[in-house]
Amino acid sequence: MSNQSAAASAKAPLFGVIAEFGSPAEVYHAAEKVRDAGYKRWDVYSPFPIHGIESAMGIGDSKLGWIAFFGACAGVFGGFGLQFWVHKFAYPLLIGGKPMVAYPAYIPVTFEPGILFTAFATLLGMLVLNGLPRFYHALFRSENFRKVTDDGFFIGIEAKDPKFSVESARALLESIGGKNIEVLED
């Protein structure tokens, strides 16, 4: 099976090599070794987030907080600005003798758009950072990889990594306890 894929790989572009691991602990320690071997374009795949895997993989912090922050700013300034503009310029309507710019009364509709825009920025930002939605992916070629959303733990080293070669990646994954190793076309 894997020989055939390797042979086919001579023609078709490669996605990379994936290997399966037995437990969160195994994949965690295997990830530390892949990190130490100097790979950059690789990932761990698991049915749930594994606590502390970022440090085992040597990847930095998520940038999502910044996106959410800009969403919050847009909502807060947009909400307040809308009310200010409506009552000061667009439609100055005297109701009950209240001042036009009654800023304490603007707080709820400053707060709520702040929350709303943060939520949209967070969800959409998460999708953009993750490159989702993506309905086609090389990993979906693998029948065994379907376990990843059930009880399978995988490491995949991508062909785009500058250090990548099928032989060395396969050898590394084997040496750190990977099973069911597959070479996947892109």
Partner: peptide, 17 residues
């Protein structure tokens, strides 16, 4: 499911979200 594949780099952003 928008192509979710359980990648750790995805989970990291997902958990932050």
């Amino acid at each position: 499911a928008i192509g979710w594949r359980g990648a750790a780099r995805h989970w990291q952003n997902y958990e932050r979200a």
